[in-house]
Simulated assay, not measured.
Amino acid sequence: MIKEAKVEEIRATLEKAQTVILTNYQGLTVEEDTQLRKQFREAGVEYKVFKNTLVKLALKELGIEGLDEHLEGPVSIALGYEDPTAPGRVISAFVKEHKALELKAGLVQGEVYDLEKITEFASIPPKEVLLGKLLGSLQSPISKFAYLVKAIAEKNEA
């Protein structure tokens, strides 16, 4: 009964998350793990360690295939709810300084990503940065056009 409840909890958690990233945390010190958890909290990412067999059962219930092979050994799971790229960005930044953490695979909006795809996905900037770039690129031609119109008006006045 307890096992079924835990599988249901994991299934609901996986179903709710936009992004699920599996990592191998073996070799991290307690201090490094604490630092990683703090960075996840600040980014709005949930970080969990579940029994691999229970995660496999939950994935089977959800009809998700392709992650079972990555659920071997000590596996931690980073879950992104609001910003789908946040877990990957935090992990990628952390891995640069702490080689013990190893990215394994992920699940992004129901699609299984291998190591290469999840690494590429993690390099996408946050939504706010992308919106800022979009607004900047939209604003640039308008600014140039306004400057040109003003220059023409000033020339005609002279």
Rank of each mutant, 00 (worst) to 15 (best):
V55W: 07
K60N: 13
I77Q: 06
K56G: 09
K150L: 15
A58C: 02
K60E: 15
K127Q: 12
E72S: 13
L71N: 09
L71P: 08
T85H: 00
A151C: 04
I152Y: 12
V95L: 02
V149A: 14
S92Q: 03
G66F: 09
L130Q: 12
V30P: 05
F121Y: 15
R37H: 02
S137K: 13
I152P: 04
E61D: 15
A93W: 03
F50P: 10
G66Q: 09
A105T: 01
L79M: 04
L148W: 11
G110N: 05
A58M: 03
Q109G: 05
F40D: 06
V108Q: 01
L107F: 00
G136E: 14
E65C: 11
I64A: 10
E42Q: 11
L131D: 11
K96Y: 00
K117R: 09
G110H: 05
F94S: 01
L148A: 13
E69C: 11
V45A: 02
P84K: 13
Q109F: 04
K96V: 01
E46I: 09
T85P: 01
K133W: 14
V49C: 08
E69L: 14
F121A: 07
L67E: 09
A93D: 05
F40Q: 06
S140N: 13
E42M: 10
L130M: 11
P74G: 10
T34F: 03
Y25F: 15
H70V: 08
V108M: 01
R89S: 01
K56I: 04
K144A: 14
I77A: 09
K51F: 09
P74N: 10
Y147T: 15
G63S: 10
Q139L: 11
P74L: 15
V112A: 04
A43S: 06
K51I: 06
E31P: 02
